[in-house]
């Protein structure tokens, strides 16, 4: 910090000139500091600690076994079949939920982009699931919808003369996918709807005059226009789906067997059932890497798609 070049004798001025000096110093850094510190404490520190634990012998059941573990934790993780199951389950969950939320969300967005009586109410209702907490979602679906005796679906099935399905036992992964999709369709709907609404009317008119039918209009104008928006939806959703936990915890607890154990649940189990912080941390590092691989692929895919679309 530089002191004022000119000495000012008066009493009231030093404070003012000091404030001035502060401002002309590095206000940018100072103003950014709270945000940077916050980010550091909440993101970098836990990440580094996870990384640290991943290379330590750290099992709560064996408090006296400590020290550097090398890659032992990773070795143990890689020979654990549950880890591979959880990896595949994670990919299945993310992939299926993405396909469902984006396609259903797009369909609903196109519907809600039209004008009809009661659109406002219908839209609010369609968006409502997004405001339900994941834990609540899990409990509602488990006890009120999927339940083979008291569930709404069971009731419907019985009325249709069919045998009720014990969803969580018979189709555990499908049930989880349904719940996650139910929660996230509104998100896709909202973002895609704003995307559709930002499409200039005259472009649609221009393409109609150019001789396009409805499908060509959708394919050549609407989809390219939604490109960026779709990218945002897919990016955000895949990151959130990768970390799905509450729906699984409250319904299947990763079961039956490992049928619905995804990576976050595997990490949780390692830490709080097996009390092995080391392996748990190693799996967490694996999850971070997986998330990064996902984003890289997505960015490549989307960027390539956009370029190709413009060349064609």
């Amino acid at each position: 910090m530089s002191s004022p070049a000119v000495a000012v004798p008066s009493r009231s001025k030093p404070a003012a000139s000091k404030a001035k000096a502060n401002l002309s110093g590095a206000p940018v850094r100072r103003l950014l500091a709270p945000a940077v510190i916050f980010m550091f404490v909440w993101m970098i520190v836990p990440l580094v600690m996870t990384l640290y634990y991943a290379f330590r012998r750290y099992n709560l059941m064996m408090p006296d076994v400590t020290g550097f573990a090398g890659i032992t934790n990773f070795k143990l993780m890689f020979i654990d079949p549950t880890f591979w199951d959880s990896l595949i389950n994670t990919l299945v969950l993310v992939g299926a939920s993405l396909v469902i939320t984006v396609s259903v969300g797009l369909g609903l967005a196109i519907l809600f982009n039209r004008t009809f009586v009661g659109r406002g109410v219908a839209r609010t209702l369609a968006i409502a699931p997004f405001f339900v907490m994941p834990v609540v979602t899990g409990l509602i679906w488990k006890n009120m919808l999927f339940h083979p005796v008291y569930g709404l679906l069971a009731w419907v099935f019985r009325h249709l003369g069919l045998n009720p399905i014990d969803w969580l036992a018979q189709y555990p992964m499908l049930s989880i996918i349904i719940m996650v999709s139910w929660e996230w369709i509104p998100f896709a709907l909202l973002i895609l709807l704003t995307g559709l609404q930002s499409l200039p009317e005259d472009q649609i008119e221009a393409v109609r005059l150019d001789g396009a039918n409805r499908w060509q209009e959708f394919r050549h104008i609407v989809v390219p226009h939604l490109g960026q928006v779709l990218y945002v939806v897919v990016m955000l959703e895949s990151i959130f789906f990768l970390t799905s936990f509450a729906e699984i915890y409250t319904t299947t607890s990763g079961g039956p067997g490992t049928a619905t154990t995804n990576l976050p649940y595997y990490i949780y189990q390692s830490a709080f059932f097996q009390y092995d912080i080391g392996i748990s941390s190693a799996a967490a590092i694996g999850a971070v890497i997986l998330a990064n691989i996902f984003s890289i692929f997505l960015i490549r895919f989307v960027a390539g798609n956009l370029n190709a679309g413009s060349r064609r």
Partner: peptide
Amino acid sequence: PKDRDIAMVFQSYALY
């Protein structure tokens, strides 16, 4: 519109 064989230039151009 597509079957009228008419081309239109829009005020906003409406380029794709």
